[in-house]
Amino acid sequence: MVIGATGQLGRPTVDALARDGWEVTAASRGGGRDEEWPTDVRAARLDRADDAALAALVGDGCDLVVDMVAYGPEHARQLTGLADRIGSAVVISSASVYEDDKGRGFDTQDEPDGFPRYPVPIPEAQPTVAPGEASYSTRKAGLERELLGAGGRLPTTLLRAGAVHGPHSPLPRELYFVKRNLDGRGARVLAYGGESRFHPVSARNVAELIRLAAARPGARVLNAGDPQAPTVAEIGTAIDEVMAVRPDTVLVDGPPPGASVGLSPWSVPLPVVLDMTAATRELGYRPVVSYAESLPGTVDRLRSDLAVRDWRECFPRLAGVYPDLFDYAAEDAWLRAR
């Protein structure tokens, strides 16, 4: 059973598992299905917060539960409460649980000198934030602790995902470049010299990790990343190639020169790069797609979405995090002054 089956990660995961021979129940709030899934995939409605509904869908038992939407210790306890009816689990966590040797993490990044200084790359043994209710990161840490504590009863692979990308993303960072190119912008501004690296991971590569972990159950934590962690400037160039355009890139040393100038969704002052050695060693992981290879599908989807609706309507989550992502007036004013 795949929980969150119609989301960005769920769609390719259902497809990968079904084609690998699993009898898949694709559970989601709407009970929908993807047109690319094999016809024998069973779609089912599920409210993730309804304990009884989850238990009923598991029924007499299933060999594997893949949970895309688990968030917090209460969701972990839902799964461990059904441990006698579940063979193993794969659950999505986040790289945001990591903290550096001074206790800095994603939750401190807006504080003075608050951005974490992680090792490059980050191994799974890196310390994590304390579990709690304060933030996304602390709740994901609580989810992990509960599930790892039940390793003997419910073998669970936790995947600490980087910046997930793909055609169905609710937070498509690629829009920063795609929309500017569609709008005919002749220049874009990148802070930190365009060298920011925030490790991406294709939804298809996450699905491959899940497929491999399903065949090798165990209690473990693994990073989930693409084969490379390109810089933001390299990402922009790759998108330009897909769109056959050549805008100028203006690089700024140091932080963004304004609140809405040079601040891309990848703009971090220090690298966030995941070590994928353990996934290769334990699962035999080989990425099925590189970042550049995945881009045409993402760009096509963004083109079609923007053709009919404003970007804020298409991607309200992205607009909530980055409300001034396309402040062209501020960019132009800064470029003129420069």
Rank of each mutant, 00 (worst) to 15 (best):
R312Q: 07
D63P: 12
G10Y: 11
A333L: 10
T25Y: 10
W37Q: 07
S169F: 06
G142Y: 05
A215N: 06
V268H: 09
Q8C: 15
V69G: 11
D183N: 10
L79D: 04
P112H: 07
R160L: 10
R286I: 06
G4L: 09
L302I: 04
R220N: 00
P116H: 04
G21V: 05
V201P: 03
R197H: 07
R286K: 09
R188Y: 11
V289Q: 05
A213Q: 03
L335G: 12
G132Q: 11
L154C: 01
G32N: 11
N223K: 13
K179W: 15
A203E: 02
A130D: 14
A259H: 08
G297K: 04
S96E: 15
I210A: 09
R338L: 01
L325C: 05
R173V: 06
T277N: 12
A337W: 10
L46W: 04
G72R: 00
G262R: 06
L182G: 06
A244Q: 08
V120C: 03
H199P: 00
G297E: 14
L57C: 02
A278L: 14
W311N: 00
Q126S: 06
D101F: 12
F315L: 11
V308P: 08
P230T: 07
D107W: 07
T80A: 13
S88R: 05
G87H: 00
A130N: 10
P172F: 04
R301K: 14
L54V: 13
T6N: 11
P247R: 10
H199R: 00
Q228R: 15
S93N: 07
L251M: 05
P127M: 11
L302Q: 04
S28C: 02
P296K: 09
V261K: 14
D100R: 08
G30S: 06
L335Y: 13
D51K: 08
V189F: 04
P73K: 09
D113I: 04
A330M: 09
Q126T: 12
G59F: 10
I86F: 00
H75A: 04
